[in-house]
Design a protein around this nucleic acid. Structure first.
Lengths: 218, 218
DNA sequence: ATAAATTTTTAGTCTTATCTAAACTTTAAG
DNA sequence: CTTAAAGTTTAGATAAGACTAAAAATTTAT
């Protein structure tokens, strides 16, 4: 039995260890969890005793196979619930996270499977992040940052890198959503801003925005 | 802020105090919560300090107005989620309770309202219990026990009194569900059993069953 | 290569919710 | 109306998860 708190730590370790697969530091975990390093150490010990992480004092942690599966299970539920909130109830991009943080801990294999079926087996959540399947496999997405798209090329918005409320509100404001057609009209070398046509409306966007929007070229 | 455990106690006190509106005893609470009387006393004190119950030592508790509203809010969510599980996902009568016990604690006013709208403002859960509205008003249902129905009369199944898994499985087995048409063919004075026609199939049911099935005459 | 800075761990405390055992009220029986 | 039984509360302990302060290990910088 994995507690709610343990699930949150596992999720955090998963996200922190995602890109570089070196071990994750106590401080990094504490920071992400908005708690103190000593609390993180306590929890790491507990997770280690339960065989969910590999841990060596002062050397950080890595998820074990069981820990990875537990983390992915929570992430799977989080993302499925986000799809539910946006597609079935009328939640917007920036409202789903807090609620999904609660729903992700509901324990019922049947519920998760039925929900997935009810939603027609989505492969991405409303932020464009992939939804793991029931075996824990994560579908790979070949998305790239809008900033990398060449002038004159056309693409579709498939996700965000920064999923902060501020950024999502910005996107809402300019009607940029998943599936929006984006054509790169011109790029400015000086400040890396670019002029794009989004849903047939022309607009100049900053480097900050272009570097936080995932797109798929077609 | 009301904790998960507090919500469960409030719900239990609400249910226990429902019929006779005298105060609810510590032992009764402990028994329903499957905990010890001393634990119940501790929690009662905490709820009392928070102004959610009126409490006098050795005299039991009653919900305060705030406590009643908090309890009803949890019950409202529980019943809405049960409707969701049965109507939208393919859960059966006897599978919903455990999951709804978890879902009822999700805190999001918006979620509850959107869910209610998504489900088309149901007034009853799958067991026929009324769903409180967002102001905490509980729609009254004029349901009666099948055992009270006179010979020759026709009625519709609207709920169960006993919502144990065993009873619900029994009902599933004989295809008795919410909305089933039931006609009382004859009643046996000796053992209070009755012969009924359910969905055009004739069957004899015992006193135990007839006294645990709510119906509405039409 | 060693001192300073940073990171991590340990030790001890707190809160929530639970338990057991003992003490105290209330109720019920005779 | 007194006493036994039943019900309730208190006192003291435990486990999970978090915190502070201090000690220990590691890294960085001189």
């Amino acid at each position: 039995m994995v507690t709610l708190s343990e699930e949150n730590y596992l999720k955090t370790i998963f996200h922190l260890g995602r890109h570089d697969k070196a071990s994750v530091s106590t401080n990094a975990i504490a920071q992400k969890m908005e708690t103190k390093a000593s609390s993180a150490t306590d929890m790491i010990k507990k997770l280690s005793e339960k065989g969910l992480v590999d841990y060596q004092k002062y050397k950080g942690v890595q998820l074990s196979e069981n820990g990875r599966l537990a983390a992915i299970s929570v992430i799977r539920k989080h993302r499925l619930w986000e799809v539910f909130l946006v597609n079935k109830l009328s939640f917007s991009w920036d409202e789903v996270h807090e609620v999904a943080e609660q729903l992700e801990h509901i324990k019922s294999e049947k519920l998760t499977l039925e929900l997935e079926s009810f939603l027609d087996y989505p492969t991405q959540d409303p932020h464009g992040d992939p939804i793991p399947d029931s075996n824990g496999s994560i579908p790979s997405t070949q998305k790239l940052l809008l900033a990398k798209v060449k002038q004159g090329h056309q693409c579709i918005c498939v996700g965000v890198k920064d999923s902060s409320s501020e950024f999502l509100k910005y996107l809402d404001k300019y009607k940029i959503a998943l599936g929006s057609q984006i054509k790169v009209i011109s790029k400015e070398a000086y400040d890396e801003s670019m002029t794009v046509k989004i849903n047939d409306i022309q607009k100049t966007i900053s480097k900050e925005v272009a570097q936080n929007l995932f797109v798929k070229t077609n």
